[in-house]
Structure formats: C-alpha cells, structure tokens
Amino acid sequence: MTQQETPVRKVPVACTLNGQETEFLAAPYQSLLEALREVVGLTGTKEGCNDGNCGACTVSLDGRIVDSCLVLAAEVDGKSVDTIEGMAPPHGLHPLQQAFLEEAALQCGICTPGFLVAARALLEREPHPDEHRIRLWLAGNLCRCTGYDKIVRAVQSAADKT
C-alpha cells in the first residue's frame, strides 16, 4: 500500500486479540493484515497475494476464518481476532502444529500459518472430517511447495488424535 500524504485521521481500534484486550491506531484504509504486522507487530500472519486468493493471511474474526487482507482494521473494533500467535499453548504446540511437523506438511512455510488457522476452524466445527471435506475447506489456502497431500494427512492425523 503506498504511503501518500494522509489527509484522513487514524482511527482507534479496540479488539480482543488472541484473548487479550488490545488497542491500536490504524489508518482507515489499512487492512487488518497490515495493521497486525506493522502496527501491532504480530508478523505470524503472512501476506501472500493481498487480494483474497491465497489464504496466507487467514485469521479468525469472531470465530469465522477470513482473509485479513480483505478486512479493514477499522472494522474489527469491538470484535475478536485470533491469529497464529494465539494457537500454541504456553508450553508446547497445538496438535495441528505438532502434526504439521511430524507429517512434514510444510516447506517454505509462508502458507503454513494460514493453513493452521483454517484447519483449526474446521476441526473445531467438525472433529473428524473426511479427506474430501478437508480439501474443500482448505481450498482457499494455496501452497506452492507441498502438493497438499502432506497437509491433508497432517490435518487427518491431528483429527485422529483428538
């Protein structure tokens, strides 16, 4: 996003971010993705395409997964946002993160936070999805390294263990 002179005033945003009450100032035209990374300093959420195709920037907004590049930061005032940073417990990993490691479900890793946040949302709704359901649910997440099979196996493996 180009930084021209800013005749528009920044807006205060107060949201619940990974369970913590958080306040920050965002430009009204700033995406949630950009605000998370550059204002709040949570860089786990990745920018891929920045136009809603790749899912690398997936976060959970009031319990629904969204592409944070297509959400304005100003919109999340009063809402609840969950990012990859909130996924692991204080010590250790979330079962999905552990499964991604064990199944080697990542290579370059840029898409991984988005896949994990999206997969968590699926397993929270449907603890034991079949392969077709997993592939359909994750269709909005692109990976250019793995060919997807290992990702699908990792999600199945995490589902089997919970």
């Binding site: 809603g52 899912g55 997936t58 907004l61 629904r64 997964i65 969204v66 592409d67 297509l70 959400v71 999206a118 949302a121 649910w137 994750l138 269709a139 909005g140 997440n141």
Partner: peptide
C-alpha cells in the same frame, strides 16, 4: 463463491 474465507465475508 470463493473458498470458506471468502464465504465468511
């Protein structure tokens, strides 16, 4: 229309 993320919005 789109994937799950898009259908949320």
């Amino acid at each position: 229309i789109g994937g799950i993320q898009i259908q949320s919005r």
